[in-house]
Nucleic acid binder design. Structure first.
Lengths: 261, 261
DNA sequence: GAGAGTCCTTGTACGGTGTACGAGACCTAG
DNA sequence: CTAGGTCTCGTACACCGTACAAGGACTCTC
């Protein structure tokens, strides 16, 4: 058995997905099972957040002691890596295939990716930290690559364009989900929390000057409906910026390939 | 004095920057001081990483007990918030002013922001978690807003375009810095680490199928120089995608404003 | 039925964490 | 000399991830 300590000595392989390890399936008295552990951890992560998840609490939730979990898993990080990949599975790849051209496929993928991040606020920090090479994540990556491949961009540029779109989605989903998490922790709606934050800002003399140039924009946005509507509107528009940018670069690469024509 | 526990009850104000609290400056025997604490924490974070920073170690570094730090700071999170904002100060805003039109200003800002994230791998998770409304962060935000304001985009669209660019930079800087961190932890150069990772991938039968469509791209990239050169190339190109996209949207908003002409 | 072996669960313990609380040491003002 | 503010420290609490070894519950073999 590969111990956690051994794994730490080989950080290049520091992912559950790079271990060969038979999944211990639960014929035991507690009816435990890796899938059950991962499912329970996702439930607790959604409800309580990343910081609150501990092996002891997770075990209690499953009616078992903390150390029992270590029969199915090497470390707590492994559980989180499994949870992350499971959640990647929520992205509906069939819907992507059903969509139209690459523009629509990218929109569908981006929207679903963003929704996943917002539905599971713990995902952002985890996805940033781990390798994300579980089976579901790999499938998602393949679909992204496929869509980008259809843009007509030269192959050397495709990974870069993938970054442009999906690192944006990751960043956007991160702040959006953290905002939502904070609102929830404060026990407020997003709208109330937004109003409170802006007010706290405005009342604070040290910020008056910094806020002044933004005032016009803030007012426009405050009058424009709910916070979630603004999140949606901004995201959609930013996606259009990216798609338009890709179209331009496709065109440029065409004319550069055949400058004489 | 506002206690940490009190702060937790008012999460809408959950940032050091929203507390009014006199900075206790150090006339004490240990010569301590909030600036010294923050500077030491940045040094330790750079050297050891976010997970390794503890109040006791930080205190030892400063020749003091852990509890001494709490005279200058309410919680560990406060120290990190101060550290985050201090590092935001590394972005060279004068260089941005010296740059040319909005395109160049965005390039300079994006590059510097990315460099900041890569130089301090602990920044990504922290910047994602806290509000980032310290004085330096506000100044950076203002500069970004200024540059975007000069694009000619309608005001309602400017925050969205800001997101498109700088959430991308955040996401890109996150994976880049995490990759570098992992390589460093493995005691390898980025090139060696990349080679090792790809090899581990290729050798693993469960990934063969998933890798097949990417093989061509991977080969091209492997032959194209160092990993850091590829990071740079991809980032520059993605930025051009974004700038081109903004240009298109500016044009579109012009023709929509005056559809009859 | 007895014994052995495998699978699973548990109790205990170690070394860490953030930080609340109260006791003291110092320095300055009256 | 005393009083009070400023700063540091020792102790303690609750909690964390997890190493280790003991034990219970099955199944298989004789």
């Amino acid at each position: 058995m590969v111990k956690a300590a051994d794994r730490a000595k080989n950080p290049a392989r520091s992912s559950v997905w790079l271990e060969e390890r038979a999944p211990r399936s639960g014929g035991g008295p507690a009816g435990l099972d890796r899938d059950r552990i991962v499912a329970a951890s996702i439930r607790m992560l959604d409800e309580e957040g990343l910081a609150k998840l501990s092996m002891r609490k997770l075990a209690t939730e499953l009616g078992v002691t903390a150390m029992s979990l270590y029969w199915y898993v090497d470390t707590k990080d492994d559980i989180i890596e499994y949870a992350v990949d499971t959640v990647y599975g929520e992205i509906d790849l069939a819907a992507v295939d059903a969509a139209g051209d690459w523009r629509e496929r990218i929109r569908v993928l981006a929207l679903d990716y963003r929704r996943m991040l917002v539905n599971h606020p713990w995902m952002s920090p985890c996805a940033g930290q781990y390798l994300n090479i579980g089976p579901h994540a790999i499938l998602v990556g393949g679909k992204i690559q496929e869509a980008i491949g259809d843009t007509g961009l030269p192959m050397t540029r495709q990974p870069s364009a993938m970054s442009a779109v999906f690192q944006f989605v990751y960043g956007y989903g991160t702040i959006e989900s953290q905002f939502e998490r904070r609102a929830a922790e404060a026990g407020m709606s997003q709208d109330d929390f937004y109003g409170e934050s802006i007010r706290a800002f405005r009342d604070d003399p040290q910020f008056v000057e910094a806020l002044e140039p933004m005032a016009e924009i803030l007012d426009e946005r405050a009058s424009h409906g709910s916070v979630t509507a603004i999140w949606d509107r901004d995201f959609d528009y930013a996606l259009e910026v990216l798609i338009a940018g890709i179209e331009v670069m496709v065109e440029r690469s065409r004319t550069e390939d055949a400058p004489g024509t």
